[in-house]
Computed example of a mutant assay.
Amino acid sequence: MKPRLVQVAREVGPHLKASGDRARREANLISLAPCDAQPIKIARPGRSLGFVTALTGYRKYLCPVCLSVMKDPVQTKCGHRFCRACILRISGPRQYAKCPVDNTWFYINGDMFDDVAVSREILVLSCMCDNEKNGCHWKGELFYLQEHLDFCDFCQVTCPNGCEQQYLRQQNSSHLQDCPLRMVECSQCCENVTAKDLTRHQLLLCPKLPVSCVLCGRNGILREEIPKHVSEEGNCPNTPIPCQFEALGCTTKVRRCDLILHIQSNTVEHLALMANKILIQEKLIEKQNTELEQLRRTTQSSHARILIQREKIMDDINERISQIEIQNSNSKRKNTEAT
Rank of each mutant, 00 (worst) to 15 (best):
N109A: 10
D197Q: 11
E225C: 05
C63Y: 04
I221S: 07
Y58N: 09
R22G: 07
D21C: 15
N266A: 00
I40F: 00
T339F: 04
Q188P: 01
V193P: 01
T56E: 14
R44D: 04
R223E: 04
T194A: 13
R305I: 02
N28Y: 10
I280A: 13
E225R: 08
F143E: 10
V12N: 03
C127D: 02
H15R: 12
H80A: 03
F106P: 07
K196D: 14
L261P: 04
S187L: 00
I87D: 02
L142A: 12
R200G: 03
D72K: 03
C179M: 08
G92Y: 12
C155L: 07
K283M: 05
T239P: 07
E232K: 13
L203N: 15
A304K: 13
K334C: 09
E191Y: 11
L67V: 02
C250Y: 08
Q166F: 00
Q75I: 15
K139L: 01
I226L: 13
A9C: 07
P73V: 10
D153I: 02
C216N: 03
Q327H: 10
R25I: 15
T298Q: 14
C163L: 13
S231A: 15
C83H: 05
N28E: 03
D72Y: 01
D111W: 07
Q264C: 08
A43I: 10
N318T: 02
Y107C: 15
N161H: 08
W138R: 05
V101H: 02
E293T: 07
L88A: 02
S302F: 04
A33Q: 05
E291H: 09
I313Q: 15
T252K: 12
E132I: 07
H262P: 11
D114C: 02
G234N: 05
H15N: 03
R4N: 14
A272R: 14
V6M: 12
D178V: 09
P227T: 04
G13P: 00
P207I: 03
D150Q: 13
V12C: 05
S322N: 15
L125N: 01
L248R: 11
R89N: 12
D197M: 09
L215G: 00
R169L: 06
H270I: 11
L142T: 08
K287V: 07
Q300K: 12
N219H: 09
C206Q: 01
S91A: 15
A18R: 09
E286N: 10
I306S: 14
K17T: 08
D197P: 01
P180H: 06
Y144D: 15
H229L: 10
I308W: 02
I87P: 01
C152G: 02
Q7D: 13
C179V: 06
T53H: 08
S329L: 08
D111K: 04
R84A: 05
P93R: 10
V268D: 11
Q244F: 00
A9G: 07
Y107I: 08
L307Y: 06
N28G: 08
R44I: 04
K2N: 07
V157F: 02
L88F: 04
R89K: 12
R94Y: 06
H175G: 06
P34F: 05
R84S: 07
G220V: 11
V184W: 01
M274F: 09
L55G: 02
E164M: 01
L215T: 02
H148C: 04
G46M: 05
F51H: 06
R4G: 07
S19Q: 11
T298D: 11
R256E: 07
I260K: 14
A272V: 09
K332S: 06
Y96V: 07
Q244L: 06
F106L: 04
V8D: 00
S301A: 08
N219R: 13
